[in-house]
Design a protein around this nucleic acid. Sequence first.
DNA 1: TACCAGTACATAGTAACGCTGAATAGTGAC
DNA 2: GTCACTATTCAGCGTTACTATGTACTGGTA
Lengths: 109, 109
Amino acid sequence: MGKQMTEMLKGTLEGIVLAILGVQPAYGYEITARLRERGFEDLAEGTIYALLIRIEQRGLVDVEKVPSEKGPPRKVYSLNRRGQEYLEEFWRTWSFLSERIGQLHEGEV
Amino acid sequence: MGKQMTEMLKGTLEGIVLAILGVQPAYGYEITARLRERGFEDLAEGTIYALLIRIEQRGLVDVEKVPSEKGPPRKVYSLNRRGQEYLEEFWRTWSFLSERIGQLHEGEV
DNA sequence: TACCAGTACATAGTAACGCTGAATAGTGAC
DNA sequence: GTCACTATTCAGCGTTACTATGTACTGGTA
């Protein structure tokens, strides 16, 4: 990751993952792979796992262990009620910030 | 600042300040005041100063000390060539990220 | 059998960033 | 002489993503 992207992901990556889980449950390896496909090519492996553990400890997601045919069991995360609320708050914060920055980009200072 | 906003500002606040300086030179107190007017109401005083020192040390801005009628001398920062390039890189990173997150917000996963 | 690639998760240590809280210093008004 | 406003600085802290490495299960292959 470029340094700028790394810093910019702080605070937003969490929202990105929660939004993905909001659509449908997923497990860490899967989320990492999907993000890499979608342009975050050198997203570090460990980053997502650390993030998932964090949001689990905050009670934003529910976890279920599901056996895999191809390796160790998967930890499938799904967004719960609290996570939903937190995600809505994230969208409000994001909307505010992206609007301001958008204005700056258009040159309206 | 809310916790989410604090985290989200990491990496973006720098770009915001560089963009402001790209329009016209400014000093710390002024930048903080302007940002507060524009919705970042509880932006911490010290944050901007620390950021300015950082970008100065990286050689992204030029500094000039200008006397003030109302207090201690101002340190007026202006974006230089390297800063301009760095800002362009910031916009590229920002555009990529905001596009991805925008897609997520629209539900296109 | 032994080895490797792919799948899947975990974690200790590090760097960077914004915030907290306090200090310093100059000006003008009351 | 004290207060408010202007203006900058800095040490210490919490949070986050990255680095690097380790563990573990499966299937293929030499």
